[in-house]
Amino acid sequence: MTPTDIAVIALSVAGIFFAIVAAVGVLRLPDLYTRAHAASKSDTLGAVLSLGAAALAFGAGVPTVKTVLLLVFMFLTNPTAAHAIARAAEDQDIEPWTTDEEGDA
């Protein structure tokens, strides 16, 4: 196994790990805002790490450049989407879940 292979495998594993964290987060977290955290960010990192692995596997060349561009767009669009969802929720006056509420109940 070459060092490149090892790096590719490490990146893929890390990517999958964060994708799983995102999924677990969406299931476990209590409300829309907190779930948006998990869905947008851990997921971004997961996708970015996987794409990084793909870019490494391709080696130098046009496919790598495309992968990197894809990566950049993930970074730009994911926060925007999360922001749009959270803002829509706020416009609908959805109150964020807090630990206090749980104490009261």
Partner: peptide
């Protein structure tokens, strides 16, 4: 700044 805040986990710019 707003996008960077959203990207760093644990913080999400709402508005």
């Amino acid at each position: 700044l707003a996008n960077s805040i959203t990207l760093t986990p644990g913080t999400l710019t709402v508005d």
